[in-house]
Design a binder for these strands. Structure first.
Length: 576
RNA sequence: GGCCCCGUAGCUCAGCAGGAUAGAGCGACCGCCUCCUAAGCGGUAGGCCACAGGUUCGAAUCCUGUCGGGGCCGCCA
């Protein structure tokens, strides 16, 4: 067990002895101010009621209990009853042994106990390649999946393929035009078509296979064939785009199969059985957002019962399903597959759907299957000092592929995770390529490579390779400088950071932590210029060198462990 | 008009189940290479956490309202 979890567990045990059973509100964390110790807890304040004594008195008891613990150096009671702990330096440096032994698994846990999570993300319409906004959702989703896997969840990555609606009809007609074009005809692609060049190759392929067989034929003759072909091509595009970023979906779920298999009817039946479907009229939107409102009798889902703002129509006036109906069926299907938990990642433009989807899941699972819906906000792209215009239909948006080709998958992924998912994100092509401390990706990677180069150099000096085993056996008493201990303490926080990120579904926390670790490591390294005793390689002192190498190695372990959650490859050396 | 997200330093953003004196990077200014990679480090300046109430021993954090920015809003998916 890592040291902080161990200390926390011990604290909770003692609390229980005083009759404090509920540890929910107890914090045990690094305080904001150094003056408040290395770890501080509000245990006495929060637990006083349960222990039936005053916070101050409980604090005093806890203090005297823990003063007997030889890991503890100092405890102070402050304010309304905070306990501020300072531990022996050995507590922190000895933890490095654990870190090195764990290696890549440092920070991993069994928090999820194998619970099955369905993580749906990207789910862009199969009408073209992915753009930079999708890239954010893709990276966010995949990293969240990695984070959850790292903490003991069994994650299925799924893409909901909207292959049933009018948009794929438009796609099909656009492709038909490209097919004619490939056969030498002049075509006129209107605003009602997808105009991107990426459809040209699809047209060419079709022309090769079918020659002029479908020229001058009615739509009926070619439509289904072209449709299927086009969708397959688009899925192929999308898979390749995702693969550029190292992302592989476990499953593409086809919307079209839902109506074919009768699952829509089943799902609606289920809602009907619960009295959640009725025929009615929606109130007109207030403020006249919609021109020419005409009241309609429609089949509605009582989503307001589950916190939605209005009931939602599931059937159009011609009795065909609205888009919402397959969505209901899809989520019913997710639930029937027996997942313990659902997570959806939506782009900002779908934020209006959160409440109704949540309502569906609550209704169909009897509120038994939790669903978390994360929204990724828009990406603003800038390049050559200016903002890029993004216009969808004209095909002017920056494509995912462009970004990856320009800056590489690792940088793309890292940058996409530098902001909280629901905050807007700037993607600056120029800054991101910069090889300097101004570029966080570089900065973190450089931290890792410095460790590697130190290990290499030490191996030369010591005239033998240095293995993790050697490092784990070193005498860490050599690590006695305040800054070395501080770094060890920082590294010890990693499991808590992971735990928190996993619980809150917030991979960006990993990025911020890595930045901090790298920063403290760089600082220590540079201090070595002035203070030779802080350098890693200590001439004529193999034991001291090994201990310092262990600290460096543990830093690299934390960094590479974190990078693996981000899906970024740690570099052994910087090039260029 | 309604709903969702956002509003923290000049700029871009963190802020950990509400915790004790508000954080980082950039930009600005001042410094640090006879020294394992200066691709780096240190320091200074800069904030009424949009505003007003409320809950609490305690609020940037939770609740209500106001203002400001973005997104979405019935027979498009």
């Amino acid at each position: 067990m890592d040291i902080i979890s161990e200390l926390r567990r011990d604290l909770m045990e003692v609390l229980t002895r005083y009759g404090v059973e509920d540890h929910q509100a107890v914090t045990f964390e690094r305080p904001k101010f150094e003056a408040h110790g290395e770890l501080a807890t509000n245990a006495a304040i929060v637990g006083a009621k349960q222990a039936k004594i005053s916070p101050r008195a409980l604090a005093e008891r806890l203090k005297s209990d823990f003063l007997d613990d030889d890991r503890v150096q100092k405890i102070e009671i402050a304010g309304p009853g905070f306990l501020n702990f300072v531990f022996q330096p050995s507590v922190w440096v000895e933890n490095l042994r654990y870190v090195i032994q764990k290696g890549q698994d440092f920070g991993a846990s069994n928090r999820g106990r194998g619970q099955r999570v369905l993580l749906e993300f990207v789910s862009a319409n199969p009408t073209g390649p992915l753009h930079i906004g999708h890239a954010r959702g893709a990276v966010f989703g995949d990293s969240l999946a990695r984070l959850l896997e790292f903490t003991g969840f069994d994650v299925t990555r799924e893409y909901y393929l909207n292959d049933g609606g009018a948009q794929v009809d438009t796609l099909t007609r656009s492709v038909y035009l490209r097919y004619l074009e490939a056969l030498g005809q002049k075509i006129n692609i209107s605003k009602d078509h997808y105009r991107g060049d990426y459809l040209k190759s699809v047209g060419v392929s079709l022309a090769k296979i079918y020659q002029d067989q479908f020229v001058d034929q009615t739509e009926e003759e070619w439509f289904d064939l072209f449709r299927e072909f086009s969708i397959n091509e688009m899925v192929e595009f999308i898979q390749q785009d995702l693969q550029c970023l190292g992302i592989k979906m476990d499953h593409f779920f086809s919307e079209a199969t839902l109506s074919e298999s009768g699952k829509i009817d089943q799902a609606i039946d289920r809602l009907e059985q619960r009295g959640l479907i009725y025929r009615g009229e929606l109130p007109p939107p207030k403020g006249g957002a919609i021109d020419g409102w005409v009241p309609r009798q429609q089949k509605l889902f009582r989503s307001t019962r589950f916190g939605d703002d209005v009931d939602r129509p599931i059937q159009k006036s011609d009795d065909s399903w609205t888009y919402f109906a397959p969505d209901i069926a899809y989520h019913f299907d997710k639930i029937s597959r027996g997942f313990d938990q659902l997570i959806n990642v939506f782009g900002a433009d779908h934020s209006g759907y959160i409440k109704r989807i949540r309502a569906v899941v609550m209704a169909l699972s009897d509120d038994k299957v939790p669903i978390d819906i994360k929204v990724t906000q828009t990406v603003r792209v800038s390049k050559d000092g200016g903002a890029q215009k993004m216009s969808k239909r004209a095909g002017e948006f920056v494509q995912l592929r462009e970004a990856v080709e320009a800056v590489g998958p690792d940088v793309t992924r890292f940058v996409m995770l530098m902001r909280k998912n629901d905050a807007q994100l700037d993607f600056d092509f120029d800054q991101v390529r910069e090889q300097s401390a101004d570029n966080p990706v570089f900065y973190v990677q450089y931290g890792h490579t410095r460790v590697c180069s130190a290990l290499k150099l030490a191996a030369e000096k010591l005239e033998s390779p240095v293995t993790d085993d050697d490092l784990a056996k070193a005498d860490y008493a050599h690590l006695n400088h305040e800054r070395q201990i501080a770094l060890a303490r920082r590294i010890a926080e990693w499991p808590r950071v992971v735990e928190q990120a996993s619980r809150l579904h917030e991979p960006h926390r990993i990025v911020f932590f890595l930045y901090t670790v790298a920063s403290e490591f760089h600082a220590l390294w540079t201090l070595g210029h002035r203070q030779p005793e802080l350098r890693i390689v200590q001439k004529g002192d193999p034991q001291g060198t090994l201990a310092r190498l262990a600290l460096a190695r543990a830093t690299a372990v934390a960094i590479s462990s974190g990078l693996s959650i981000l899906g970024v490859t740690p570099l052994k050396e910087m090039r260029g």
